[in-house]
Design a protein around this nucleic acid. Structure first.
Lengths: 239, 239
DNA sequence: CCCTCTAGGATTGTCGACAATTTGCGTCCC
DNA sequence: GGGACGCAAATTGTCGACAATCCTAGAGGG
């Protein structure tokens, strides 16, 4: 109460994050960046030793990742990093298309278009920087941050929550198929045009560009399939 | 191998479901139907005693529900059933609109429209039956099953996964605000028209009807807000 | 009378050990 | 030599107890 505002800016409790959350985040990053390749088995005992914690918190972290869809659990067998098949690539981008379309619509109609556009432009700068340094990992990260920012800008708790896993899976795709990149200028250009359409409030163009952006990615990552036509993905495996 | 096919139709392992999953499902149902009203605190010790299990599996179930967004966890305080504010109603239906639009598109373009329409019609029959018996709970359940079936028909793992929580939250809304129901005939009619548009392959009509369906629900559950215009939800609380 | 500090109770967070189940390999029989 | 059986190792699933943390109620002082 007596503390003058402005001083001691950030003195959150020493451990504001639960142990399981910390572990989950670390594993998420490791999976996302490819440090833990798809199909890897994660032994509880081994990981518990590595993280210097008991199996309790570690189990919670694992279960969290399972429910997020990053790990697949086989009863009494173990936990494995999911491996993405071509059908999953299709599925991921179809779902992302749905989510980001909605987010874009809310950004377009929700006001503050310019503020949102500024935020997005920041991530494009990051992309350009990463491109200049020829750092594919940072480029992908910045790319994802663009889309994350777009979805955050929608202001929808649930869109944000649903997109989190999708973006991680997208990162896995990009990591796994780094070779199939398009020209970096083109990649930056697409996002820039998207921002411009948003700034102009041009719904038609923005949505079309977004759809094309997704379609392009699918074509690049899983050639032969398409989001727009109704052809079933090559590897069904769906429920 | 020597077993003649057709006999012993379903002899899956005695316990094919993990303990935590069973508990999670029971709690989910309880929350969905309103047996556990929003805001209720769930004590681990108490629940562990009720379910006759240790706190370990129970904790896992709880954490699962937390990550699904049905429970909110306050560190060192306890777990509480989320309470839905008007802003959440808006958010839920905005997200559902995005998901179901995508599902409808895939159902429209993915072929087998008639088979899908037949499946959906089945749930409408359930709705009519529940309406005839004047059972609001069963009516809501059938309503949700319609939308669940639509999303399942999309064949997208991720759309299904993302929709699960949304449908549960929808059920919570319907349970909490049973008084604001529209005429049951109208409610059945809306779904029937949706099926017809799907059967005809009329994308324009199907998507428009779906959007209107969502808009109607929002108007009924959270008067004064709208999905289509960009007005911020009355209670932000978003990240 | 109100504010502050302290002690108590209760709840979650964490840990180590035991039990159940599955998989792989070695052995035995055909 | 091939196949089935059984044992053993490793892994997950479960449990009870201890430690850390937080709210609440009460006493004490201003």
């Amino acid at each position: 109460m007596a503390l003058p505002p402005g001083m001691l800016p950030e003195i959150e409790p020493v451990s504001r994050e639960s142990t399981a959350a910390v572990i989950a985040r670390q594993l998420r990053d490791a999976i996302m960046t490819g440090a833990l390749p798809p199909g890897t088995q994660l032994g509880e005992t081994e990981l518990a030793a590595r993280f210097q914690v008991s199996r309790g918190p570690l189990r919670e972290a694992m279960q969290h990742l399972v429910s997020e869809g990053l790990l697949r659990s086989e009863r009494h067998r173990g936990l494995f990093v999911i491996d993405l098949e071509p059908g999953d690539v299709y599925d991921i981008y179809a779902a992302r298309s749905a989510i980001e379309r909605a987010a874009m619509l809310r950004a377009l109609r929700g006001g503050d278009r310019n503020r949102i556009a500024d935020l997005l432009e920041q991530t494009v700068v990051e992309m350009a920087t990463a491109a200049g340094e020829d750092d594919p990992g940072a480029l992908s990260t910045a790319d994802l941050r663009f889309h994350e920012a777009l979805i955050n800008a929608s202001g929808s708790k649930r869109l944000v929550r649903m997109a989190r896993t999708l973006l991680i899976e997208t990162r896995m795709c990009l990591t796994a198929l780094q070779s199939t990149y398009q020209r970096v200028e083109e990649r930056v250009e697409e996002h820039t045009k998207l921002i411009q359409a948003l700034r102009d409030g041009d719904e038609e163009t923005a949505l079309t560009l977004l759809e094309a952006h997704m379609e392009d990615a699918v074509q690049r990552l899983a050639p032969g399939t398409s989001l727009t036509d109704g052809h079933a993905p090559p590897v069904p495996g769906n429920a």
